[in-house]
Nucleic acid binder design. Structure first.
Lengths: 228, 228
DNA sequence: TTAGCATTCAAACGAACGTTTGATTGCAAT
DNA sequence: ATTGCAATCAAACGTTCGTTTGAATGCTAA
């Protein structure tokens, strides 16, 4: 046993090159719109390399996701741990919960040089086109983070019905997704558009907070007052 | 000239059957994920019928869009006309602008029996995956509506910088898109989830209004005070 | 009855798809 | 030197793709 080669992470770049190329192409053209020949060509590797290293196109897609989503989940959980440690048993403020949840996503989306932005575009896109095999691992990999953050949100807004909070979290994720896909889609609908990307985060957070803390609609108020 | 057959809209159902089948399949699996054979099979027409009636797969996609988007645009413009007529030269209230813009979309999304819901899912999905050939006609068909509604929003919020308004409109469209794709994506991220669909609209509008009227972020306030 | 024409149909086209194969390469350990 | 093995490679596999073709069909107008 000269060297525990064991869990071999050999072939220094080709796996990474494939993942990077695939990430960008999937974000740009979607899963079905991207071919193995495009991926391997852009990564400058042999056509068979993907099947050799990952097994299949779907497995590659999963790995593209797992690589960054795992990182994003860790960041979100760390943020929440830190925040909850600071306040002890007291509930967090809604703004703190939002910062912990969307902060890491926006930071990742702001990283345009290491693929973070590319991945967040892919994530937003995939969310609206959940292919069969994607639903499965998406739900699994998101589960813990969503569970902990929804609970934190419940506690931060004790007077708001839980169903309402879940919906608003959903609305907020939509707003953030569009914010990240951002300028492309914006230019698609309005005319040309250029703006300081650094302003996106303050803009978005004040919008989200406004929506999250908006007065409850009357119909919901009525439903929440009586029984249950 | 016995009958002005002229602009023939013959073949009573096959065009419509193709459009309906294509609309559903495109919404479910995307453009690249849907094959001509799936479409024609689900529509119970011959494989060559699509190319005969529409010319190509892309042209079919365009027609699927045009059919409903045209209707949606008309509704939105009618709403705005009516509202502006009511108030004369005075600016509209933000809530009125939102009602005019998102009301027709939500109504269409609530129609689950005539394909309206299906189309709105497709629209939200396409927004985040703008294929080359889609960008073109999307921008064209959206142009007039977006122009008029952004102006109406400017006037309804005279103290808010225009760039801010454009962004917030963008955020709102994201929230609405997610709201419509709705329960599918929600169940993907949280656990199971069931709720009264009739409550969606009041929930969404109070959220949107809260976001739209939220206080401006400090950075933007600073930028807007000095020159320019 | 017949001519014209829009529509439908079965069949085939070449191209591109994801995947597999079997040989070749180049380094590490014997 | 030689064996072992992970990695790369060119080539081919069988499918499925969007589109085209040319013949059949059925209705309408002359």
């Amino acid at each position: 046993m000269p060297q525990p080669v064991a869990d071999n992470r050999n072939s220094p770049d080709t796996r990474e090159r494939i993942l990077d190329a695939a990430e960008w192409l999937f974000a740009e053209h979607g899963f079905d719109g991207t071919s193995m020949r495009q991926i391997t060509s852009q990564a400058s590797v042999n056509l068979a390399a993907v099947n050799y290293h990952f097994g299949s196109k779907e497995a590659l897609f999963h790995e593209v996701f797992h690589r960054r989503l795992n990182q994003l989940n860790l960041l979100r959980l760390q943020e929440l741990d830190k925040l909850e440690q600071e306040v002890g048993d007291a509930p967090l403020k809604p703004s703190q919960v939002l910062e912990g949840f969307f902060g890491p996503a926006l930071e990742m989306a702001a990283d345009t040089t290491h693929g973070g932005h590319t991945f967040m575009r892919l994530l937003g896109r995939t969310y609206t086109e959940p292919a069969e095999f994607v639903r499965k691992f998406m739900a699994e990999e998101y589960a813990e983070v969503m569970e902990r953050y929804t609970v934190a949100l419940y506690r931060s807004l004790p007077d708001v019905p839980r169903a309402e909070i879940v919906w608003r979290l959903h609305f907020m994720m939509g707003a953030v997704s569009y914010a990240i896909s951002g300028i492309d889609a914006l230019a698609l609908v309005t005319g040309r558009f250029d703006d300081d990307p650094a302003l996106l985060k303050p803009r978005l957070t004040s919008f989200l907070l406004g929506g999250l803390r908006a007065p409850l609609p009357e119909q919901v108020m009525q439903d929440t007052k009586p029984a249950r």
